[in-house]
Design a protein around this nucleic acid. Structure first.
Lengths: 265, 265
DNA sequence: ATACTTATGTGGAATGTCCAAAGTTTTCAT
DNA sequence: ATGAAAACTTTGGACATTCCACATAAGTAT
């Protein structure tokens, strides 16, 4: 049983630690600090870069943008325009003084950003780090954060504690996201997330789903709830075929916000 | 009526934008892209660095650690070396598998970043956004987040919910920060924060205070606890005079980590 | 216009970085 | 032990970046 972990691994761990403390490191400094040649450090950095843990620069390396969580930000980078459009449309559902529940997810985080400087006097209950962060600068918004186990992939907290906590509150509107939307209803990959969504829906007067049209007809592990449980769906393109019919039949209010109102670089 | 904002300002804005998109920029590339000499870009970067907006590197610049709130950030920008030293020292108190409670604050956030890639298999209970964010990429760490009202200034959650939640757990070590440290003990400006700190101290085996020496003998609104309640104090310079005596008399283990072991820019 | 401050460009010396090739040490399986 | 592979250091030359002093340009107030 090896208790040590190999010199290379140790070195690279030091590099990562250093990088967590300051935004950039220099090859030469690391070399002296680690007592190895610059070439070795270069190789280490090269390897870490290949593994996607750091970003190489001339003369050293930098950590990658924090909040660039693999699962989270990946999705966040794509479809910015779509999410913008949805966010803008969803903001119009909110009026000053409302109590909102906002689910974790990249679309809902976008929504929170749009909300921050648009509506005053809100109370927002969320399990999502990015949402809290987005709303934080707006002092007139009260933010209640849920307890739970933090998941880096989702950028939020989950678990029984989260659900039990949510159960104590009443909200005007719940805004949730989803991995997919089918005739059955919204679904998600992660079971824990489903429970949180369900709880939010249960405790809110209006129940809005925020999804990009790319999620239409995508079926994932677990169904969040039947379509009829939703009161509103906000998206950026008209659904077609059976899904459109099902939405209509369920009495869901459909908010469609075509892209292209304001260019975000 | 100036509609434009001056060439320099525009240039620097471009630099910031570029930096928001990729973790680092190169002087040479910016120079050609902006159509100015490298010397000018260098001067721009230098100025941005002085303003605390970017961090200069050899050959370019990188953005600074994201995820730190404004009020938070302000304090964080200062005394980086001190906090680094403290963080490194504090990390040595932690062993794999420990259960930690980490308070919100800029020093503790720094500590969390240092911890992220240094020790495996931790469970961290925290009320601080930045701490969760720092630890998130390290998959082997379990992060439990407290409920509560989110305070943008402090970058964490507070309130009765927070305290009640903490009361359910037992930890090996609690790491707390403070606004000041006097003969009486650690104190803080914000009453809510004090309660959280107290609760953490109460639920942990070892009780460590992380403070920069600039906090010595500073008296603020509320006393967190008497000196004797602490088991460890981690700082970067030896306290002097009565404070030193008091610490010694209280049986507190003092960990001093002088600055300058590893030059980080 | 003139004087003054601020921005920007230029050139060269000093220093730092990169890369590849070759030599040395360490590690490890047999 | 022994040989082979992996890891590391060294070396030297090509190239990039920095720094500094000074020249030039642009903008501002008098």
């Amino acid at each position: 049983m090896s208790f040590s972990e190999g010199k290379k691994a140790t070195r690279q761990r030091v590099i990562m630690t250093e990088l967590a403390l300051s935004p950039s490191v220099r090859t030469s400094e690391l070399a002296t600090r680690l007592g190895v040649s610059a070439e070795t450090v270069r190789r280490d950095i090269e390897e870490l870069t290949r593994r996607g843990l750091v970003s190489r620069t001339y003369g050293g390396a930098t950590g990658l943008q924090l909040g660039l969580q693999p699962g989270f930000q990946d999705r966040d980078a794509t479809a910015v325009q779509e999410r913008d459009a949805i966010a803008r449309m969803a903001v119009r559902m909110v009026k000053p003084g409302d109590v909102l529940m906002i689910d974790s997810g990249s679309t809902t985080a976008h929504f929170a950003r749009a909300l921050a400087y648009s509506v005053d006097g809100l109370t927002v209950i969320t399990n999502c780090l990015a949402v809290a962060q987005a709303l934080a600068p707006q002092k007139k918004t009260r933010i209640v954060f849920c307890p739970g186990e933090f998941s880096a992939d989702e950028g939020g907290v989950y678990g029984p504690d989260t659900c039990a906590f949510l159960d104590r509150f009443n909200a005007d509107i719940a805004f949730i996201g989803a991995s997919g939307l089918t005739l059955d209803g919204p679904n998600d990959v992660v079971s824990n997330a489903c429970w949180v969504k369900r709880m939010m829906l249960e405790r809110a007067e209006r129940r809005a789903l925020l999804v990009t049209s790319s999620k239409f007809n995508r079926r994932h592990l677990e169904l969040v709830c039947p379509l009829e449980h939703l009161s509103d769906v906000v998206t950026e393109a008209l659904p077609a075929g059976p899904l459109a019919d099902a939405l209509h039949a369920s009495g869901v209010a459909l908010h469609v916000s075509p892209i292209g109102h304001s260019g975000t670089s």
